[in-house]
Design a protein around this nucleic acid. Structure first.
Lengths: 344, 344
DNA sequence: CTGAAAGCGCTTACAG
DNA sequence: CTGAAAGCGCTTACAG
């Protein structure tokens, strides 16, 4: 009695999930037919509407859900697209992750993102994992060593594109850091000089000079000064790394209060703003800064002259366009940044 | 000649990836041995050190990477843990996603997160996808209809826990919204009354009253008023939804300028702060607000009295602790919020 | 219009 | 100390 016919008795009891064989058996047909009906190729196989309906009904009734591990294993394509991203808890990378998922779904992929905390070992480890899950394509965002990951992907025959930070072994889509920094510095220089009546060198805070993006931004920063005939002392460039605390510390360590600051990234900005709020009110008054990167609240802070917003939709559009071509290249594609200036 | 022995000739040429059979063949052993060596069970199978070394060397040489789709299909456990999250581009959910990955890796899982934009259909769709990828456990964060997802998981025999928004069919871990809102409202009321010399009802902006968290926060908001003998007019609760623009619009539509505002979430705060900055400077002067949720920059805005920060590490700690027990429950676990007050 | 069979790349008892 | 074999749940030519 306890081993009676359970056909039509609803979802499988814990443990065993319903398979196409279960469905085939209760319908009285073959697994092939069930598979074809469930994956939409049944018209092509000229299965009768009647059988298709019956199969679909039983599938729903039993709470069937395809086992994609099996499906992917059998098919040639996995339909999975992977992304490596340094952080989520950051407006820029948060927006990248979010819009990447959206774009991936639109392009018919299942997106899998993993966050690697700017740790080179984690990056490599994560890339290996994603390759093991048979991603068809890997987007490598802001990786410290994109070329090693490119090698891995090439060896596995997997498409790869670098985003945000360029590499030399794959196509790269990055913001035009030089242009953005140049324009942003020009604005801050001119606002400062209108305020004080004279030209004065700015400070640059955050990042590392051996990082491509930082060095491009420093280049724009210096160029904007030299356009005005100014030469920036080396001591004005505080490339102290990315941690917020580092920005705080190196500003505090200066021994005087710089009045015009170019902050490199919102992460450094957290430190800079904390430093600012810890100052006595009178010192704080006439300090102005700008920041490369955009954050909705940071943009509205009182001492902020403007921010350079990276164009996330355009960056991702370029990435997906590149993925679609399927070509290989080692070109660097530059996407301009948008300046968002504080209303005076 | 073009079909010569390619053993030791490096990674597979495009297309075919190296399998354990390839390695077995070039080493001159069986796939079983290769599998055992590569997944670490070889000591138990008493394979000789010599053979193990040889296999490992060839695996590295050929750039072997396991096919986890095949591995997971064969094994009983997938080791995959899934999470559904409404957004990445938000400090709270960004932090949740980031710390979830960290915790998952520590617990030996491969984390897969998908972002569902507060869209009930996408939530369901994403849950189905993750189940199809054989997740062992699903964390459902801030879902509009967690119970339908719980049903899906139960049918598939998959552990499920709700995070941030409670459900009635699975264990839920959420912030103590009532306590946080109560304490936060008390602070704003007392600062306002110290400023003006009299008690005045605050406005509540953002969210939906049929959303559990919003209604709990409204309850705390009202309770703080009634503690002071005040009754809040219904018109003071602007539960206008979550979009920033909605907050902007409903504040603008008031026809007067409220002086004390409880903003429900940083998303609504973006609208509220924009509304604030669009006001004439004299109106802006003495407006104070607080906000449920924390954002590093928003916390430093001039008119901000304080924010309620949800305790993300504690929330996730509870989630993973629950996952580890493997029990089922429909209990709601409350995690207190931290008040972060503006330095005066 | 439909089914039997092979095979995707692993893992794991089982039998030496 | 090691290998042959079965099987995880699908998909897809192939043969009716």
């Amino acid at each position: 009695m306890n081993s009676g016919d359970e056909a039509g008795s609803g979802p499988a009891i814990s443990g065993k999930r319903t398979t196409i064989y279960d469905i085939a058996q209760t319908v009285g047909t073959s697994a092939s037919a069930v598979s074809a009906v469930l994956n939409g190729t049944w018209r092509k196989r000229r299965i009768s509407q009647k059988l298709a309906d019956r199969i679909s009904a039983v599938a729903v009734e039993k709470g069937y859900s395809i086992n994609l591990q099996a499906s992917v294993l059998r098919r040639e394509r996995s339909n999975i697209i992977g992304m490596i991203v340094p952080k989520y808890d950051n407006r820029y990378f948060g927006a990248i992750a979010e819009q990447f998922e959206e774009g991936a779904r639109k392009a018919g992929y299942f997106p899998v993102i993993t966050c690697t905390q700017r740790d080179p070992n984690l990056e490599l480890e994560a890339a290996r994992m994603l390759l093991s899950y048979q991603v068809e394509c890997l987007i490598v965002t802001g990786a410290t060593d994109p070329d090693r990951i490119s090698d891995l992907c090439h060896a596995a025959g997997v498409k790869v594109v670098n985003l945000d930070l360029p590499g030399s072994k794959a196509h790269s889509v990055i913001s035009d850091n030089h242009q953005g920094a140049l324009e942003l510095t020009r604005v801050l220089l001119s606002v400062r000089s209108a305020q004080t009546g004279r030209d004065e060198c700015l400070y640059f805070v955050g990042g590392r000079t051996n990082d491509h993006n930082t060095s491009e931004r420093v280049r724009g920063f210096l160029q904007a000064h030299s356009e005005r005939g100014m030469t920036v002392p080396a001591a004005n460039v505080l490339a102290c790394g990315y941690a917020a605390q580092k920005a705080y510390d190196s500003l505090s360590a200066l021994g005087h209060v710089p009045k015009g600051i170019f902050v490199n990234s919102t992460i450094s900005l957290e430190g800079a703003v904390r430093w600012l709020t810890d100052l006595p009110a009178q010192d704080r008054q006439d300090i102005l800064y700008c920041c490369f990167d955009w954050d909705p609240f940071a943009a509205l802070m009182p001492n902020c002259v403007g921010m350079a917003q990276q164009d996330v939709p355009a960056l991702l559009e370029r990435v997906f366009a590149w993925v679609a071509t399927g070509k290989t290249s080692t070109t660097v594609e530059l996407v301009p940044c948008r300046l968002r200036l504080q209303q005076p």
